[in-house]
């Protein structure tokens, strides 16, 4: 009964389930970017339980989700698996030779509409997708999840202006405000203080939210008005490496893979 199995899986798109898969797969493949993926687990869970609720990934008038911070793709793959859109065997191929599941997401994998991996591209593609939806008289939303450091990229602000000017209210940007980037804390690299105020100044409707509160995130994602008007920006305050004490807010875990002892400890911590 594959349909029923999918049904069971679909209701389990939770931050915990996503975290568990992130740890399992990154440990198995010995690949990093764990902290970045853990920080968006609840956001991704909220997106897939409130906006991307369609049964099949290829539905014509589906909502679009762009993981602009592509390096956190494991969180996305986990959600696609939990939705029943990719199989366990495919999930287990993460980062092995011949896989379609790389460190960054690529089109060609069921459920991925846009390839990402270079920061500062996702929002522009999302604005195009949102404009396309409007021109086609579609009610679909476009959700773009960015990292906070992605706001270092000038192109992000080019699109911020464009989307506000064209009143793309069906475009929902989310900034994962975990305060970290590859080589340091954002406050030390390029201070991003007043993130919401910056977007507001650019003409966006901003919503500040706890990025680990799936219910609060879901509520906003469901309620945003998508008619002609200001585009939406959720400033989601998160903890880098959320759920694993020794990873939280530690720069090292941007790139580092986990060993056996750390893996067991991490699994225990996210469960508790």
């Amino acid at each position: 009964m594959p349909g029923r199995k999918n049904e069971v899986r679909r209701i389990q798109v939770t931050g915990y389930q996503i975290r568990k898969i992130i740890l399992e797969q990154s440990f198995r493949a010995q690949v990093g970017h764990i902290g970045s993926a853990l920080s968006i687990a609840d956001i991704v869970a909220a997106i897939y339980s409130s906006v991307l609720t369609q049964r099949r990934p290829g539905e014509k008038d589906r909502h679009r989700f762009i993981l602009s911070k592509g390096h956190a793709a494991l969180a996305l793959y986990a959600a696609l698996y939990l939705k029943g859109w990719i199989q366990k065997k495919e999930l287990d191929s993460f980062c092995s030779d011949g896989t379609r599941l790389g460190v960054h997401p690529e089109i060609g994998l069921r459920g991925v509409d846009f390839s990402t991996g270079s920061l500062g591209h996702g929002l522009a593609m999302g604005a195009g997708a949102a404009l396309g939806a409007r021109l086609g008289h579609s009610k679909r939303k476009v959700v773009v999840l960015m990292s906070d450091a992605e706001c270092n990229e000038g192109s992000t602000w080019e699109t911020a202006m464009f989307a506000a000017h064209h009143k793309l209210a069906n475009l929902v940007g989310i900034v994962d405000l975990n305060g970290q980037q590859a080589f340091g804390y954002t406050k030390d690299v390029l201070n991003l203080q007043g993130m919401a105020a910056r977007w507001k100044q650019f003409g966006w409707e901003t919503h500040s939210v706890d990025g680990h509160d799936q219910k609060a995130l879901t509520k906003i994602l469901r309620s945003v008005k998508t008619n002609f008007g200001k585009p939406h920006l959720l400033v989601a305050k998160t903890t880098f490496g959320k759920g694993v004490s020794f990873m939280e807010n530690q720069i090292k875990w941007h790139y580092w893979p986990i060993n056996q002892i750390e893996y067991k400890q991490a699994l225990k911590e996210i469960r508790d």
């Binding site: 591209h121 522009a124 593609m125 999302g126 604005a127 195009g128 997708a129 396309g132 021109l135 080019e158």
Partner: peptide, 14 residues
């Protein structure tokens, strides 16, 4: 950059 990004999104929409 935004122009090409927007065009990419539009092209994906057909």
């Amino acid at each position: 950059q935004n122009m090409v990004g927007v065009a990419t999104g539009l092209a994906e929409a057909g």
